[in-house]
Simulated assay, not measured.
Amino acid sequence: MAVAPERRLALLGGGFSTDDDGLLDDWVLDQVSVPRPRVCFIPTASGDAPGYVEQFLQAYQPRSCVPGVLYLFRRELDDDALRTFLLSQDVVYVGGGNTANLLAIWRTHGVDRLLREAFERGTLLCGVSAGANCWAEASHTDSFGPLTHLADGLGLLTGSVCPHYDSEPGRRASYQAAVANRVLQAGWAVEDGVGALFTDGRLTDSVTRIPQARLYRVQPGRAGAVDEQAVPCRLLAAARPSTPPA
């Protein structure tokens, strides 16, 4: 009997668009066993911003991978070509921006269904900010201006997600209040610098490029309180340059 592929996704608190060291990008590629993985960047949440796409290409073209970009604001692929393209990817990396707009546009073009199919086939799904929010059942977002909740994710990860937990004013308190009041389900709060890998719905790796950065499990507590538990994160280290022979 054939063994079903592992279903994996990663929440990122950074990457090529914010970090100079490339540690989280290297960590993402390390999760794929093929020699030159195909990596598709989806910049929908930023409106396919050209500068964002250029950042991705500059970061990933020198790496041992085959980078590509899926444009939806100037879509060039018909339905069959779109499905073939997405299902041929080893990694799908979703950029930040507006989570609500991202989900609406994906559903218009059927990308949500294709990503679910890719997920079931073993493609690693990952992303930062909106690109982390989108995979869960619900998320904490500023898609509508003020910080609020969005109970409208793809549901590939049970519960909720909150990005920028330590770096944006009001994030921590607002997310904790939403979880404590059960407006949002229990979930994962990601500080900048952190990466969290989920395999078949379970947390299987948590890393950080910043010693003090953390991943948190946030759940409702007693009497309207909230229970926040820090998850140990493995510190990523930059590769040492090789020493030339004497």
Rank of each mutant, 00 (worst) to 15 (best):
99 T>S: 12
100 A>Y: 11
101 N>A: 13
101 N>G: 12
102 L>C: 03
103 L>T: 06
103 L>I: 13
104 A>G: 13
105 I>P: 00
106 W>A: 01
106 W>I: 00
107 R>P: 00
107 R>H: 02
107 R>A: 01
109 H>D: 07
111 V>G: 02
112 D>G: 01
116 R>I: 08
117 E>G: 01
118 A>G: 08
120 E>I: 10
120 E>S: 12
121 R>D: 11
121 R>W: 09
121 R>K: 13
121 R>Q: 15
122 G>F: 09
124 L>H: 14
125 L>F: 10
125 L>H: 09
130 A>I: 05
130 A>P: 04
130 A>Q: 05
131 G>T: 07
131 G>E: 04
131 G>R: 04
131 G>N: 05
131 G>C: 07
131 G>W: 02
132 A>R: 02
133 N>M: 04
134 C>P: 01
134 C>F: 04
135 W>F: 12
139 S>E: 09
140 H>L: 14
140 H>N: 08
141 T>W: 05
141 T>A: 08
142 D>H: 06
143 S>C: 09
143 S>W: 02
143 S>Q: 03
144 F>Y: 15
145 G>Y: 06
146 P>M: 09
146 P>W: 08
148 T>E: 09
149 H>G: 15
149 H>K: 10
150 L>A: 12
150 L>I: 11
154 L>G: 01
154 L>F: 04
156 L>S: 03
157 L>H: 00
157 L>Q: 03
158 T>A: 13
159 G>S: 03
159 G>A: 03
159 G>M: 02
160 S>A: 11
162 C>Q: 07
162 C>M: 07
165 Y>L: 06
166 D>C: 08
168 E>Q: 11
170 G>Y: 07
172 R>M: 05
173 A>T: 15
174 S>E: 09
175 Y>N: 02
176 Q>F: 07
176 Q>R: 15
177 A>W: 09
178 A>F: 15
180 A>G: 11
180 A>W: 09
180 A>C: 13
182 R>V: 13
182 R>K: 14
183 V>G: 08
185 Q>M: 13
186 A>T: 05
187 G>L: 01
187 G>T: 03
188 W>Y: 04
190 V>Q: 04
190 V>T: 06
192 D>F: 08
194 V>Q: 03
195 G>N: 02
195 G>A: 15
195 G>L: 03
195 G>K: 02
195 G>W: 00
196 A>I: 07
198 F>T: 00
198 F>W: 05
199 T>W: 03
200 D>F: 05
200 D>K: 07
202 R>I: 06
203 L>V: 05
203 L>E: 05
205 D>S: 15
205 D>R: 15
205 D>Q: 12
206 S>N: 10
207 V>T: 03
208 T>H: 02
209 R>W: 03
210 I>W: 14
211 P>W: 08
211 P>Y: 13
213 A>N: 06
214 R>P: 08
215 L>Y: 01
216 Y>R: 14
216 Y>N: 10
217 R>Q: 13
217 R>H: 10
219 Q>R: 14
220 P>L: 06
222 R>P: 13
222 R>V: 10
223 A>M: 14
223 A>R: 14
225 A>G: 15
226 V>P: 15
229 Q>P: 00
231 V>A: 09
232 P>N: 12
233 C>G: 10
233 C>E: 06
234 R>V: 08
235 L>T: 03
235 L>G: 02
236 L>T: 00
238 A>N: 05
241 P>Q: 14
241 P>R: 12
241 P>G: 11
